[in-house]
Design a protein around this nucleic acid. Sequence first.
DNA 1: CTAGGTGCAAATAATTTGCAGAGGC
DNA 2: GCCTCTGCAAATTATTTGCACCTAG
Lengths: 326, 326
Amino acid sequence: MAISSLPDLRALKPEGGKRSSKREQIVNVFLRQEGHLSADDLVDLIRRDDHRISRATVYRTLQWMVDAGIARKVDFGEGRFRFEHSYRQPRHFHLICKTCHRSYEFLSSDIEALVEEVATARNFSPSQSVVQIYGTCEECKTGKQPATGDGHTDLVFARDALRIAIATERSGLEFYTRAAKIARDARGRKIFQDLAAEEKEHLATLEARYAELLQRDPQLESRPTFLFFKGAANGLFAEGAERLTKGVNDQQALLIGIRCERGSHRFFKKYGERFEDSEGKQVFLEFADEEREHLDLLVREYRALVARQGRTKRKRPASTARASAR
Amino acid sequence: MAISSLPDLRALKPEGGKRSSKREQIVNVFLRQEGHLSADDLVDLIRRDDHRISRATVYRTLQWMVDAGIARKVDFGEGRFRFEHSYRQPRHFHLICKTCHRSYEFLSSDIEALVEEVATARNFSPSQSVVQIYGTCEECKTGKQPATGDGHTDLVFARDALRIAIATERSGLEFYTRAAKIARDARGRKIFQDLAAEEKEHLATLEARYAELLQRDPQLESRPTFLFFKGAANGLFAEGAERLTKGVNDQQALLIGIRCERGSHRFFKKYGERFEDSEGKQVFLEFADEEREHLDLLVREYRALVARQGRTKRKRPASTARASAR
DNA sequence: CTAGGTGCAAATAATTTGCAGAGGC
DNA sequence: GCCTCTGCAAATTATTTGCACCTAG
């Protein structure tokens, strides 16, 4: 939850309003806090520094922050609102402990997808969704402190992004290795071998980056998952790799690869774009680019293959012509 | 949302409190309404009949209803609570229109499962979860009335239960038909054929019931989905049926069948148990029983097969012995 | 000088509570 | 008669607003 480096407030949408020491003071105190503050919590905090500040100003500043996109108003059903900063904080869901009233954040690409589906089925245009799981947290159940406190979300997010990227890379490596093995055409085999080599190299890079991340926070690995995504379990290429059996020819293998790379590229791009500037975002976007390159390579190769076959055989069937189009 | 037949209030947890005309009046008006009422809405409604009723009494009665389990307090982030009756109403999620402030209900077994997973991963004991999708509803976007109003949830729920049951039955029929085709042993083939016949018969029953349901509400089929469940799309046996290829022997086929029936039985039982008495609940529970019988039959057959093989061959391998245990 | 920021106190809005009277058992 | 329900008015809680004053640009 903590913000590793405070945002530059001067750069942060100063539109509409003149500089005011009070407002800046409130914003600074707010951003320095972690967790979900109620207006009252914030008033108390501010009054430690300066007890000549009015409740109304705090409310007004909170509203200003929400409008400026610095803060988000969240409702935990307590009969009052709480505020969380949105700077570097992606939209997320909450686990809310009814005993200690603390709340924990998580993100689930899977739940998001289902929510999207439900909305579509009902012809509903969703603008925002709330997922709140009420219950009892581990601490309140067992009485003991959980091993991992509120780690820096930034790092945890980067960790989860890297884990997904690594799983995808591993399944990609498996995929291209298999593809190279069953390839019939020398040229096709070369492509798959090259891609396998590239995946291997990239995998090493990602793993190094992961190790480097762990060094920055020794407990990082034991912190709970923040970003849930089922596709990560076996990697996004796992299904494709499974389909690569002896009977598959080069063209089919290319098509399966294209489908996997496309899915992967889309996932990483979509997620990368959603976040504020952060290490995790960077991981997502870099990976998306990587996948994009592979995708382009495969598509080029596929087209070349089809063209060669067109010269040899009669002509390519309409269906594969369609499939080769982006 | 409408209650087809009003519950018998006298039977409804009258514990703790004497009969009071005012309370009964309020409860009756509340239960007659559909949708999500705010305390104020209810006060207005009550005052149409009797304007000598105090706001405080309405609040007290609402609280009483929540305690008695007749009503649920829901928070749509408006800064005040709304109330919905829980009689015959399973816990559900909401789509909330920010324009017209209406809300629509849905249930998603899939989202529930993911929520459960997240909670488990975080060692969190969930007691309740809130899923709210905010946005714009179809009416507010297009301006025209949606074809289907607020249908009786009871009927829609029964419809969805039947749809899932039918899809499962269809995939079950497909599964047993295939299994009978590839069975090597005459006895195994007989079992699969019998089950296929049974599925066919049961399928006809379910379809008749579905048709009967449609007659009760001619628009029923066009009402939006209430219960979302991915497994329904192809039926719970679809995956199993796919695995039934030539290479599969009778023992393996039985195992796959057992796995499918078990999954199916569990799903229907779990869902059936969650709801208040209703047609949908009945559909779920009856189906669960049916699957349970099939499951038992398959398990018996599997054991018999293993025993026979044990006499013929050396001895059964440990792994299959384990698999045959419930 | 002037628009916007700030404090204070009063206003709202939803909901709860204290208390005295009313009514069922 | 007792115990609970009920109405009324006052209290509480979270938040907003009116208004006069203040301050940076």
